[in-house]
Structure formats: structure tokens, C-alpha cells
Design a protein around this nucleic acid. Sequence first.
DNA 1: AATAATCCTACAATCGTTTGCATAAGAGCA
DNA 2: TGCTCTTATGCAAACGATTGTAGGATTATT
Lengths: 345, 345
Amino acid sequence: MTRPRPTQKPVTLKEVAAAAGVHPSTVSRALSAGTRHLVADDVAARVAAAAAGLGYRPDPVAASLRTGRSHMVGVLVPDIANPVFSPILGGIAEALSAHGYSTIVADAGNDRARQIDLAESLMARRVDGLVLATVARDDPVVARCLERALPVVLVNRAEASARVSAVVSDDMAGMALAVDHLIGLGHRAIGHLAGPPQISTGHLRRRGFVAAMAAHGLEVDDAAIETASSYSREDGVVAARALLDRRPDLTAVAAANDLLALGLYDLLNERGLACPRDLSVVGHNDMPLVDMVAPPLTTVRIGHREMGHEAAQLLMRAINRDAGARLNIVLSPTLMIRKSTAAPL
Amino acid sequence: MTRPRPTQKPVTLKEVAAAAGVHPSTVSRALSAGTRHLVADDVAARVAAAAAGLGYRPDPVAASLRTGRSHMVGVLVPDIANPVFSPILGGIAEALSAHGYSTIVADAGNDRARQIDLAESLMARRVDGLVLATVARDDPVVARCLERALPVVLVNRAEASARVSAVVSDDMAGMALAVDHLIGLGHRAIGHLAGPPQISTGHLRRRGFVAAMAAHGLEVDDAAIETASSYSREDGVVAARALLDRRPDLTAVAAANDLLALGLYDLLNERGLACPRDLSVVGHNDMPLVDMVAPPLTTVRIGHREMGHEAAQLLMRAINRDAGARLNIVLSPTLMIRKSTAAPL
DNA sequence: AATAATCCTACAATCGTTTGCATAAGAGCA
DNA sequence: TGCTCTTATGCAAACGATTGTAGGATTATT
């Protein structure tokens, strides 16, 4: 057993050429769709047969070196463990693989230097484009891509300046859905657990919250808003603690994110308070499993999978027709009413 | 604006060589740790300075073509949307990047042909190794890697024949934990929601269940076990329906997987039954958020992140010393007792 | 029938590194 | 001084594809 080199070496273009009795360049042309018309039909058939017979698989590395393209796109996510990104990734991968593209995802964290580094290394690997789920409102990675003229699409989060295409949810409208629902139930003292302001979702959802309240003639006191330092359950509880300590009179809270809402749940448990009896809570994202928590979370649903799909399509367009107008797609969110909201006592 | 080609081309080895006044090959040697000792210290310093000055970044594609290595490893997961894999992926990526390796994950689904295809394309991209979270008990992808002499490590699931290294949880022990707990509470009529038998976890956890019951002198009737066709919430409810229809007398169910347990929750809700009053439930995996569902799920915890770490280490070892003994790491699970289990009425 | 146009195919350069081999310079030794 | 032995560098050939250019057959045109 364990023969030293059982590795039957992959067959190369040259071997196929020899087998078909033609020059390697002819094989190349015969085999790639774009140039097949340059070679005579009978020769093409002979080549195809030889290739199939030998089990030829073109070497993408060699092709990349020569062409500068790779049929791969990179995806940068801030936290691969955050369930929100799963459907986005799934959507992207599905749409791209339909075009013969592979996806290479990198868990980039929130550190800018690391993000740039990762992006740089993806570019070095000749990715044909980048999907960024990491961007801050003013992002250096975007600038870098622009310099290199690398197609890039933003997903879920947008930049402040619309330099590149993006597909996002209508964050302000989403908050309006949440606020309208709470006000419809009779709430007036409503607080907001905000996300990081450097991120478009954090910024916009906060603005959306304030605007929606104003639309009902409700002035929002700064004390009614607490900003979490990241989108995580842990930072959610610390922000929630600060908010409720400051404003114990609140009867409802609209969170910028489901994870923050769950952090709030944790705090309520810790304090022996009941949701929705003592406090109504609405989340944002409708990520997997929030329909099963106790109580099932009322939240703003975003079509994440669709979001990934659209982003992939946009990127393909940008890759194929080089340049291509930058355009924004904004998806309309819907409200999933479950059990975490009720009329105030 | 939009200058046609603002793309300042990346600097190459040749340019660095010119700047330092040496031959490209010398630059190559001076810059890579393994061969630096071949070049004089002063020259090496000069080269390093030139490289830094020009902002040289080696081209990994060209290097791959020449060396056949890539400093990338591929990871195949069956379902990227399944939260169980997030911490595994995180653990793998973290450990690998510490060694200067990148991770390229592919969502392979459950289709064998697709898995093989994906693995093949990763190999074509010259990955230095593969981590498989997809394997069935007898897996063709493993065979393919063996043929190509490509280092491979299994994670979470194992093969029936131990042909390659793997890091898994002690599935039988995990089920013993679950069963012992239920029996300790006074249950006797205990059922099992089993996972797919082609997968080691499905197979082993079923055997573990039967063995643990036997250890308490309890014979397990086949009717007390229902096999789900996949690890999903949806298939969980259909299996649960079949199981409870057949054996309405059960007072507890040990599921092979948290998703299946949640499917069982769905069914209980649908029938107006309460957990744990009418039925105690224990899951397996302790995936994110199951501590927040209603009721919080008692489940067997597996160190998924650690699992990823270990797998990465194993793979690094296999890549560096070529060959390397195949060895198995089995992690001990623990029981997280929450609110879904109680004494029978 | 001669010339122009068309169509295929072969040749060779190229992408950016790495690495076996040759060689020049310097060190050590008799 | 003449010899071998290191040591440091240059040379050039890979790795496996793609593609501009050139030239040999065919066919069409007058």
C-alpha cells in the first residue's frame, strides 16, 4: 500500500495537443467557448474527444497567471459566526456558481488593517471582484478597489458616498415599520438600541427611528437612545443595561439588530422582567431561530438570501461589461409580528 | 476622474531586482525565509530595502504555478447556513491564518457528485490540503484525495474506515450523557430522533443511544427510533410526527441534533403539547441560540471551535511533514442542562 | 488563370516565480 | 604559488495556459 507517488499527474494542454495531433494553442482555442469559432469543426471535435479521453482539466492557476482573471470572487464578512451572513453567503455563492464562478469568503473582523490586508491578498490571488459585507460608512477597502479598478459590490451595508454599487435593505423604512407597529399598540415611551454609527445600518436605523417617531409627533430625547459598540449579544446587554437604567419608564424598545434585541432579552431575564408584559421588544433582520426564542421575536425581516443574489448579479454585470454604471438596489423590509410586542399595561 | 487605467501595476520581482542591482533569482532567495541563508547579509538587506521601498508583494499565483503549492486550504461544508459550522469554520480559519494559510470554504451540499466536483476544483487551484465536514461513512472524496496524495482531515464527522485523520466528538459518550440524564430524572419510555445513518454522527449517536439504554437494562424497540432524512428543522418535524404518532407513550426524546430537537419543538407547538411537561427533549451540539429558545434546550455541548482548531493543527502537521501518521482526536462532550428536561409526570 | 480575400493552424512570447546548475570570487591549505 | 573547497550570485528552464502575429491552404473574384 501507500505507493510513494500514486499521484497520477494531471494531463496538460500539451498532452492533449499531442494526442489530437495539433498545436497546444489550437487546443486552447478549441476548448474555450470564446475562441472555438476560430478552429475548424472537425478539428475541434477531434480535440474535444482527445481531451475527454485523457480526462483533461484546464489548470486555473496557469490560466490566471496569463489572463489576470480567476473566475473567483472574494467575499469579506465581519463575522462569519453571525448567522445573519449565512443566507447572504448562500445567496451569493448560488448565484455566482451559476455563472461558473467560485466564492472565497474571508472572515475579516472589524479591524480595518486586517480588512485591507485580506482584500489585498485576495486581489493578489486575482479575484475578479469583491463583495464587501464589512464596509463602514467611509471605507478604505473601497478606495483601494477603486484604485485597482477592481469590480466591487457592497452588501447589507452601504457607504456614505455612493461610489460603488450596493444592495441594501431600506433601513429607514424598516425602522418606520417597527415604530409604527409599537405606536399602533399604544406605546409612546419608546427607546432605541442603536448599532455602531460608523456602519450604515447603525446610522440609518437610528435616523429612521428618530424620523418615524417625529412623524407621529414624538420628539426623541437622546437619553432614549443607547449605542452598542458592536452587533453582538454581549454588547447588546451592556447597552440595554445603560438604556434601562437611564430610562426605566420606557415601555418599548426597537433594536437595530436581532442580536442586540437578544442581549436585551438577557438583561430582562437577569432582572426578572417579562417581555412583552414589562417591555415590548422589536428586533431587526429576522435571523434564523429568532422565531423560536422566548418570546418569539417581533422583528423586521430582510431578504438576506435575495440580497446575496442581487449582489452577485450586480457583480457579474460589473465584471463582464467592464465599468458599468454603479447602481443601488434597495430591498423593502417587512415586519414579522410575533410575541415580543404587546400593548403597554 | 476615472482615468482609464489608474491601476498602478503591481511591482514584480524583476523590478525589485533592477532597483537593488541584482538578479531576480537573488531577490527571490533573499525574500523567502527558507533560502535567505544563501545570500550575503548585506545584499539581503539591500534587497529587502528595495522591496519595501517599491511596495513589492509577491504574486501567489505565479508562485503556485511554479511550486504547486498555494498556502490555501479548502474546507467543504454540507450547509453553510447551518449555525453549527460557524464556530468550526472560525476555529479553522483562526488556526490556519496563524500559520500564514488562507481558508477557502465551499458550500458543498449533500450531493456527492457536487462534492467531488468542488473538491476537484479546489485541487486544481492547488490547495495544500482539505478539511472535510461533509463526509459520509464511506466517502468518495476521501478516496480521491488519497489518490492524489493530498493531505486531508475530517472534522465533526468521521468515515467508517479510519483512512485519514479526523477530529470528532465522542458521539456515543454524548448520547450516554443524554440518556443518563433522562433516566436520572425518572424517564423510562425514551425515544430517539436519529440522524442520517450514512453519516457517522447519525450512526454513532443511534448506537450510543441504544447502548446507553441497554446499560440501564432498557431494551430499545425499533419503534422508539425514527430517522430523519437530513439534519434540518423541517425534516425534524416530519420525523418527530412519525415517532410520536407511533409511540404516544414516550415521556422523553433524545435527538441526534439540535435542529432535529427544534423540529420536535415545532411539532409540540403544533399539537399544543408542552415541553417539558408533556415531553422532555434533549438535543445535541449546543449550537448558538438554543439557550434562548422556549424552553431553553438541554443539549450535549461539543467544542466546535476547538474542533476546528484541532483539525487545522492536524492538517498543518500533515502538510509540513509529508505523510505523517493518521491520528484521531476525539473530544469529550459535556451536558448542558437547561429547561427542556424534567421528571415525567 | 492570376490575384485577392478568407480561413485555419502553428509559432513563440508572455504572465511572475522558483530552483537546478554553472561559475566567479574568495578562503583555506600545503 | 597552485590547489581544492566554500560561498554567493547569475543564468535559464521550468510551471501550464493564452493570444498576437505570421504564413500556408483554400476559396472567391475578375
